[in-house]
């Protein structure tokens, strides 16, 4: 059985469109003048104005490696971040800390630590899974490069970005 669509009965004013058209014009010109007089400003002029001061505490930027106040590199190459990383952006080559090193008792360190920032999805699972508080997502968001190789952050770059983090648990203390 055919279904009869009930059409709304339009008034004359609605039929000739013009009142609606004029109302619309009123709305748009209101917006126009609001922007023209600078009363409203939604757009941030990116390179000149930046998000940095607006970034929330929980912002997840580029993952980095940190050292602590004792100058120890926190990472012990447990490879849990490599394991958890959903896009498999992390590559670690573990190595053994040499006999004469101050932190010999830690035994293990990353010989190579690479994060492919083309792959990274900034999910923060690496930070969450890290048992050594070594990897943190900092507030750097403008990660750019001209080549793919440049976009792979090696250990040096990761420590540059990460810097020193204080107030972390000092697990490898004298008693350890």
């Amino acid at each position: 059985m055919a279904y009869k669509v009930v059409r709304t009965k339009l008034t004359f004013a609605e039929k000739i469109y013009l009142p609606a058209v004029l109302a619309g014009l009123g709305i748009t010109i209101k917006h126009f003048f609001r922007v023209l007089t600078g009363k409203k400003k939604e757009t941030m002029q990116y390179p000149e104005e930046r998000w940095d001061s607006h970034l929330p505490e929980h912002y997840r930027g580029a993952p980095t490696l940190v050292k602590d106040e004792h100058g120890k590199e926190r990472c012990v190459a447990c490879q849990l971040c490599e394991f958890i990383c959903p896009p498999r952006a992390i590559t670690i080559k573990p190595g053994e800390i040499p006999e004469d090193d101050r932190w010999r008792k830690v035994e293990k360190f990353p010989e190579e630590f690479e994060i492919d920032m083309i792959r990274c999805i900034y999910c923060g699972l690496c930070e969450e899974v890290c048992p050594e508080q070594a990897i943190f997502l900092r507030k750097d968001y403008a990660i750019t490069g001209l080549t793919r190789a440049e976009m792979v952050h090696d250990k040096k770059r990761l420590y540059e970005l990460g810097g020193v983090m204080t107030g972390l648990v000092f697990k490898w203390n004298e008693k350890k």
């Binding site: 012990v76 190459a77 447990c78 849990l80 830690v106 035994e107 293990k108 048992p131 050594e132 697990k171 350890k176």
Partner: peptide
């Protein structure tokens, strides 16, 4: 037992 699972090969 030490809590060094992150560097332990048995982990």
């Amino acid at each position: 037992h030490p809590l060094d699972c992150p560097i332990c090969d048995q982990a």
